[in-house]
């Protein structure tokens, strides 16, 4: 039986779809077709005990996925899954795409400017329309840094350090 620590979030059930137990799922992966590669997922019961759900079919509807499970055959059973997070085992995780890093790995990393003038901790990654933005806590301030190669010079996963380009107006309050 899997503990929650060994599981990785892969989606969240939004609502039932139709009357045959299909559910609409928000995908927590870069690949919207991710569920097509999986055989089963887990949901957590009230006491955080994982319950295995075998995937019978998976199709995409825009950025969302429509799933049917062997254990869920009607709308009432699908309704019971509403709001539940779907998990996979850690060893089923795909490697991060070339040149990218998983957000959960980035959070908590030390962020330093190339000149070494500022340093802080990466606390969040915002998905914004133009590009992702790193939220960095520098002292008691919050600094937002665009996650584009122009700014992010290197990400060292071993030293857990992100080096960013220092640009006037980014870290200081200058106009």
């Amino acid at each position: 039986m899997k503990e929650e620590q060994e599981l990785c979030q892969i989606g969240r059930v939004l609502r039932p779809h139709g009357i045959r137990g299909e559910v609409k799922v928000q995908v927590f992966s870069d690949r919207s077709d991710r569920f097509g590669m999986l055989d089963h997922v887990y949901v957590l019961n009230g006491e955080n005990t994982p319950r295995k759900l075998k995937i019978l079919s998976a199709r995409n509807q825009g950025a969302l996925a429509l799933l049917t499970f062997a254990e869920v055959s009607d709308r009432d059973a699908a309704e019971a899954l509403k709001g539940q997070t779907l998990f996979i085992e850690d060893d089923q995780m795909l490697p991060a795409p070339e040149g990218k890093h998983y957000i959960h790995e980035l959070i908590g990393m030390e962020v330093r400017t190339d000149g070494g003038r500022f340093s802080g901790t990466l606390t969040d990654v915002l998905a914004l329309p133009a590009h992702n933005v790193y939220v960095v806590e520098v002292g008691d301030r919050e600094v937002l840094i665009p996650a584009v190669p122009e700014f992010i010079l290197s990400v060292d996963t071993e030293k857990r350090r992100v080096t960013v380009r220092e640009m006037p107006g980014l870290f200081d309050e200058e106009e």
Partner: peptide, 21 residues
């Protein structure tokens, strides 16, 4: 303004997931 939303929707979950940046 299209690139600076006034209501920020946090689409990625807290915790471990396959979202990358």
């Amino acid at each position: 303004g299209e690139f600076a939303p006034t209501r920020i929707f946090r689409s990625h979950p807290g915790g471990k997931s396959e979202r990358s940046s």
